[in-house]
Design a protein around this nucleic acid. Structure first.
Lengths: 191, 191
DNA sequence: TGCACACGAACGCACATTCGTTTTTAATAT
DNA sequence: ATATTAAAAACGAATGTGCGTTCGTGTGCA
């Protein structure tokens, strides 16, 4: 099925936001990229520049929330849950790398009240992520290192995968997933 | 010794760049923050907005290059080198978190040829970081996971520490360092 | 007397967005 | 097939705003 012009515009916007950053991306350049002579023509397809950013951020935030909902529901032990969280981050990043990059890097340019909404969702996700790690430490499945350190180190690792992972480097996402899991859970060192 | 006005201006600029992002930071707001009524007055202390960004980026890039220079010179085995790299990242971040944040997040707004210079330095650093990990894998000190995955996962972990590490959380940088080392090298899982 | 600094006006530019108008498209009726 | 119509999309001019920076001038301190 053909993409609507609206879809084309939104995808080009995400790409432009990713490449230049939200503030440096201009509606004039976006127009050019989708074959329009005038930026004003864009407004037949979108409400505003920020509205595009909002949709991208919200969409991805919901993906993560939905993901952790299911992980909490289905998985039980912390190790399997961590594995599932790695899986979640990699899959979302692989599915739409452009969109997840914008989500990750440009959310701070949301204006209120959308910024607060976004941050609330983010905090919610992070707290639940952290709780999984804390549970692992409490039940002595994980090492007795500082939970905050463990949490942020792992979250950071998986949150920025989109920065460097390019599928064409002929490493599959399955291998990527299991390598990251090995590294974070079992450590870099051999025995 | 008292800070010169120039120092005050540069530090306030770094802080402003960090808080709002380089593009969203305005010279008028910077002026206000350092007690000047007019943005034009700033130009007695700095050459241009971008010049401030350049100095911040260059300064930090050199810190990392100098750091890895010494690590290559003094340390021998990959494990000790990784430990030293973690130490390096944490110390640079702790010493001047504001500046390292700007360095890390805003370099892309450098214009040519400074951008290319910066990226060359960055590539240099990353290649040498990666070489250490590859050596560890080749000599079978490290697990046989994909070197690129190992490299980026570790680099990402240490590169974004400034995002979340606040010294007032009463965890010392020594503990932070050893916990991150434990996690990355020995793994999260117990035994 | 000179120098460092602050001021205030001004310049030129790029930006997102609005508006009224024209063109294109596609569905309907002849 | 062709003509009619209404909606969708593109246009181009215009608006207002904020930006970095320059310049000429003034002020106060060494």
């Amino acid at each position: 099925m053909n993409k609507t012009k609206k879809q084309i515009v939104f995808e080009a916007a995400a790409k432009l936001f990713m490449e230049k950053g939200y503030l440096a991306a201009s509606m004039r350049e976006l127009a050019e990229r989708v074959g329009l002579e005038q930026a004003s023509s864009l407004y037949n397809h979108l409400k505003s520049k920020e509205d595009v950013l909002r949709k991208i951020c919200l969409e991805n935030a919901d993906k993560f929330i939905k993901g952790i909902d299911e992980i909490e529901r289905i998985k039980n032990d912390p190790i399997t849950q961590i594995k599932a969280l790695i899986h979640l981050h990699i899959n979302i990043a692989a599915e739409d790398p452009t969109s997840v990059t914008v989500f990750n890097d440009e959310w701070r340019h949301l204006s209120e009240p959308y910024l607060s909404d976004f941050l609330a969702k983010r905090r919610n996700y992070e707290n639940r992520f952290k709780a999984i790690i804390e549970k692992g430490i409490q039940t002595e499945v994980f090492k007795a290192i500082d939970p905050t350190v463990a949490f942020y180190t792992i979250l950071t690792s998986v949150r920025w995968i989109h920065y460097w992972y390019k599928p064409e480097r002929n490493i599959s996402i399955e291998k990527l997933e299991s390598d990251i899991f090995d590294l974070l859970v079992k450590g870099l060192q051999k025995e």
